[in-house]
């Protein structure tokens, strides 16, 4: 047991760093994923993650594989797409999902083109899939800072965010906080996607956000429990994924997302709140 579950982390610093980075991502990303699902924005997270690519690619063109340059570029691109799509939805007859899809497809193509202009295929793979095993000190600091900031922001925004999700019209008649909340939420989302981008790449980072969130929805009935469970599932997936990747010599990012996927499929079947078994073999109903 020790050899299997502890030794890889005891023996190798890069495994410890990977674990710390992935846990930081899990703690902040998974609760965000729960809100994305509740706000019916499950696919927006994916779209936004792709949208970060051209910004990071420009940073890469300017400074090579540099953490600050790619972070700033990614942040800028993510914010532009988030608010550009929102603006397009309000100012044109297209709905927000259509605008977002258009924006992110263009972004992804632009990003891949930009990276290929200068870099090798290895660099492109790094950008698309990240490398959680190569996180340096500054990257770890960045991930932890973003995770802390996100949890603080969620605590502060909790009430308006919940009200804006469950009954936006009511929030709009009682305060003017609705749009500010939405903007802050999108900002935090972009931050987390940029963090995820460094560890898991643009294609995989949403996995650690959405899969544990969807799994938690299948178990918990209360929002508080759902949020905590989502973070727990994400940490678990990160750990199992890293161990599997070490033992089986599989790529680490996809292994983590696959572990999250395994938890998701188990939850689909066994989930106590909406799982398939409950659906086909319901409990006996109560007296009242």
């Amino acid at each position: 047991m020790h050899d299997l579950f502890i030794a890889p982390f005891a023996d190798f610093a890069f495994m410890r760093r990977a674990l710390v980075g992935a846990v930081a991502l899990s703690l902040s990303g998974a609760p965000l994923g729960v809100f994305l699902i509740l706000r019916r924005m499950s696919l927006s997270g994916d779209a936004m993650a792709h949208a970060i690519l051209p910004g990071a690619a420009i940073g890469y063109l300017v400074a090579g594989l540099s953490l600050p340059a790619m972070t700033i570029g990614g942040l800028a691109a993510g914010l532009v797409v988030a608010f550009g799509a929102g603006l397009a939805a309000r100012a044109t007859s297209l709905r927000e999902d259509a605008s977002l899809a258009a924006f992110y497809l263009v972004s992804l193509a632009l990003g891949v083109t930009l990276v290929s202009l200068r870099g090798s295929n290895i660099d492109l793979l790094h950008v698309l899939f990240g490398n959680v095993l190569a996180l340096d000190d500054s990257a770890l600091m960045l991930l932890s800072a973003i995770a802390s900031l996100t949890l603080l922001a969620l605590a502060l925004l909790y009430r308006p965010l919940v009200l804006d999700t469950v009954d936006p019209a009511f929030l709009a008649t009682t305060t003017r906080a609705g749009s500010a909340t939405q903007i802050a939420f999108l900002g935090v989302l972009v931050l987390n996607l940029v963090a995820g981008f460094h560890a898991l790449g643009t294609l995989m980072s949403v996995g650690l956000m959405m899969l544990p969130a969807a799994s938690a929805r299948l178990w918990a009935r209360r929002l508080e429990t759902t949020l905590a469970l989502a973070a727990l599932f994400a940490v678990l997936a990160a750990y199992i994924g890293l161990v599997a990747s070490y033992r089986l010599a599989t790529p680490s990012g996809p292994s983590i997302v696959l572990a999250a996927g395994a938890i998701y499929f188990l939850s689909l079947i066994f989930g106590a709140s909406g799982g398939a078994l409950r659906h086909f073999a319901p409990r006996r109903h109560l007296e009242a």
Binding site: L38, T165, D167, A169, F170, T173, L223
Partner: peptide
């Protein structure tokens, strides 16, 4: 206070 017609409440939201 305003109670709109058919308030747009998301009844699937996990709230009591």
């Amino acid at each position: 206070a305003y109670l709109p017609q058919a308030a747009e409440i998301d009844r699937t939201f996990p709230m009591d």
